[in-house]
């Protein structure tokens, strides 16, 4: 049993496999294009790397930079947010995202407390948190099993604390997964997204959203998506092409 856990753990930690040499050279080319100021080519190469299934935060980060330099704010925000999903603690990504978001007037900058909470929430990577919960879970059952046969007081307290730990970390993990998987977020990628009162051109435009704004997808009814603006508590329908899911 212990051996199984060990093997599983090793397997999971080494889950990020190195990419092929092709992708590495493509990355080098893209960076060179960017530095020469040829952002369009750089964007194409970065996108190609991503299409090859390599999801590296550095690629998304550089892609965001290229989009920003190419004056595509919305796509830049999208790329940075995707990079943050892969590496939630990267200060460079946060810095650039914040800088690009400063161009969106409606985007209220986060307060220091919000930033701190955000930082604490994302202080460990999702995989590390998952493994922590995983090992706590296994350890809890092992100690419980031992306790069945060796009724010692310390073991009981170890079990109680392990249980509390598992409960808290499990809730945290659930929150992380929920905010990532259950809430579908999207970014406006056109200069001004038009949000209508219903799914169709016949409905009047209720409000517009600036490029780069983050929205929550509530419902999909192709080609219309019902979206909500969290902090304003407003919702409406937008054409699918005007946004892109993170």
């Amino acid at each position: 049993m212990k051996r199984i856990i060990l093997i599983l753990g090793i397997l999971l930690i080494s889950g990020s496999a190195p990419a092929s040499a092709d992708v590495a050279s493509l990355f080098g080319q893209a960076n060179a294009c960017y530095e020469k100021g040829n952002c369009a080519d750089a964007i194409r190469s970065y996108e190609e790397i991503i299409e090859n299934g390599v999801r590296d935060p550095a690629v998304y980060y550089n892609l965001g930079n290229a989009y920003y330099k190419n004056n595509q704010l919305g796509r830049a925000v999208l790329a940075y947010k995707r990079a943050l999903r892969l590496s939630s603690r990267d200060a460079d990504i946060k810095n650039n995202l914040e800088y690009v978001l400063s161009f969106i007037k409606e985007e209220r900058p986060k307060s220091p407390i919000e930033k701190l909470l955000d930082r604490l929430f994302n202080i460990v990577s999702l995989n590390a948190l998952t493994l922590f919960v995983h090992y706590t879970y296994i350890l809890l059952f092992i100690i419980l099993a031992v306790y069945l046969f060796v009724k010692r007081k310390p073991l009981f307290w170890i079990n109680v604390s392990l249980g509390i730990m598992l409960l808290l970390s499990g809730a945290w993990l659930y929150g992380r997964i929920y905010s990532r998987e259950i809430i579908k977020k999207a970014v406006v990628i056109v200069t001004q997204g038009q949000v209508r009162n219903g799914p169709g051109e016949d409905y009047s435009v209720a409000f517009t959203v600036p490029e780069g704004k983050e929205l929550v997808i509530i419902e999909r009814r192709n080609p219309w998506y019902e979206i909500g603006v969290k902090e304003k508590g407003i919702r409406g329908w937008i054409r699918r092409e005007e946004i892109e899911q993170i």
Binding site: G15, S16, D56, N65, L126
Partner: peptide
């Protein structure tokens, strides 16, 4: 830019 040499697929989520 970030110009580290080796790219890795970080998209594999354990859960």
């Amino acid at each position: 830019l970030k110009t580290k040499r080796e790219l890795k697929d970080h998209g594999n989520l354990v859960y």
